[in-house]
Design a protein around this nucleic acid. Structure first.
Length: 423
DNA sequence: TCTGGGGTCCTAGGACCC
DNA sequence: TCTGGGGTCCTAGGACCC
């Protein structure tokens, strides 16, 4: 039996979320910025048509956006996360097996379905998601994940598909691959695009017919797998249960540059706290804490960046120990006289948190007492909003926090920010 | 003045061991 | 002075994704 992959991809997801809660934005140009209002990460069709590229630095495009009366938003991840859950729950009505691939994409396996029914079924999924959540999606259907992805790309570009591109129903898949620029293929980024173009490979179809040996040499085994998928041979399986992360990273750019060690410590402690929360969420413990600092990337002189790695005496998920290690590391690499733009904390050497008997008596063992304290803190923060309860090391003023000047309300996750219906 | 953040996988090369 | 071969483990760097 051949495999069938269906990919559901939300159309300019963050913009669609903002529009859902503010219907006045429906026909207007809208974009959403990354953290710290750094660059454009989600664009409505109108903004794409103006020629603002994905990832465009906001400061460079501010004037153009203003000129075209684009509605600009800071990112609002609690809102997007919640909307994503609604979309995924809707998809779960169609099949219990789902791979939640990213905040705005999911793969569904439809093995064994009749080919001719699938396009209509895709339409039904699309209609239902829109009806239940207000989010428009594109649907791609193919015999591999990569081809399903091709499908969503084609569905977005070709109006005739009406949002659903079923490559299994196409008599000639090459015809579609020929219309897809090689840069839009899953696994082909900026570097590979430039390299491939140098060899006259411009479309997905061109890539499909290159020799295996050549592809492997130029794009490693990962590239070869992807090309096999373009040819309809599955190389990437559906993974329903997400693997626990192998590393956890929390970092932010500052709103304004920071020179003082005290403020850097507060920021590092804040990131360490959040990293520890993520760690506990996936029931892991860490053995290593790394902390890094960096001045602005675009700084001409006085550029400095460094990283320190601090081993923990026992694997732990205790925020206090992780904060302590992060601050210790920071002290090792901090240099006076620089203006820092960013600090981050990452946790590595993660393992599953199984209480171990043999280390029960070790001084730093992550034991019952510590676990219970962390559990209590997590449940308070879950109920009353993250950061309700914090550690003193994180500071109170947080003058280093990033910019977020155009943020919409958290309509769905905060009672005090609920939409008010006007009669 | 101002250019995100959080991940994964692959490969090459060095350290170390026998 | 010259200078093995094979294996493993780790890390850094580069590519990608969203």
């Amino acid at each position: 039996m051949n495999k069938i992959f269906v990919l559901i991809d939300c159309n300019n997801f963050f913009v669609s979320c903002e529009r859902f809660f503010n219907p006045k934005l429906r026909e207007k140009p809208v974009c959403v910025l990354s953290n710290n209002d750094g660059c454009v990460v989600s664009r409505s069709q109108e903004v794409k048509d103006i020629g603002v590229p994905m990832g465009a630095p906001y400061f460079k495009y501010e004037k153009i956006l203003k000129y075209h009366k684009v509605h600009v938003f800071s990112s609002n991840f609690s809102l997007y996360g919640d909307m994503s859950n609604r979309v995924m729950k809707t998809l779960a009505h169609f099949t219990p097996e789902i791979e939640f691939y990213s905040i705005d994409e999911a793969f569904l396996p439809f093995d064994g379905f009749e080919k001719r029914d699938l396009t209509e079924y895709g339409r039904e999924i699309k209609r239902t998601v829109y009806k239940w959540t207000g989010i428009p999606v594109s649907v791609g259907i193919g015999s591999t994940k990569t081809l399903a992805k091709v499908g969503t790309e084609r569905a977005k570009k070709e109006l005739a598909f009406d949002g659903v591109c079923n490559l299994l129903a196409e008599s000639d898949i090459d015809k579609e691959l020929e219309k897809l620029p090689v840069s839009d293929v899953w696994g082909v980024g900026r570097r590979y695009t430039a390299m491939l173009k140098g060899f006259g490979i411009n479309t997905a179809r061109d890539l499909k017919y290159q020799k295996d040996e050549w592809i492997k040499r130029k794009m490693t085994i990962a590239g070869l797998n992807m090309v096999h998928e373009l040819r309809g041979k599955p190389r990437f399986e559906l993974s329903e249960t997400p693997e626990p992360k192998k590393q956890i990273l929390c970092s932010r750019s500052f709103g304004k540059k920071v020179a003082e060690l005290k403020k850097l410590k507060e920021a590092a402690a804040t990131h360490a706290t959040h990293a520890a929360e993520k760690l506990r969420e996936q029931h892991s413990v860490a053995e290593m804490v790394s902390v890094f600092v960096a001045t602005g990337k675009h700084e001409k002189n006085f550029r400095y960046s460094n990283v320190a790695t601090v081993p923990l005496s026992e694997p732990t998920a205790d925020s206090r120990e992780i904060i302590k290690a992060a601050v210790t590391g920071l002290e090792q690499i901090y240099k006076k006289g620089y203006w820092y733009k960013k600090v981050g904390v990452f946790l590595t050497r993660l393992s599953f948190d199984t209480p171990m008997q043999q280390t029960l008596f070790a001084k730093d063992h992550y034991g019952k007492k510590k676990r219970n304290l962390m559990k209590a803190i997590d449940s308070i923060n879950n109920e009353f909003g993250s950061d309700t309860m914090q550690f003193a090391a994180s500071g109170t003023h947080k003058s280093w926090k990033g910019k977020s000047e155009k943020k919409s309300k958290r309509y769905t996750t905060r009672w005090d920010e609920l939409l008010v219906a006007k009669g």
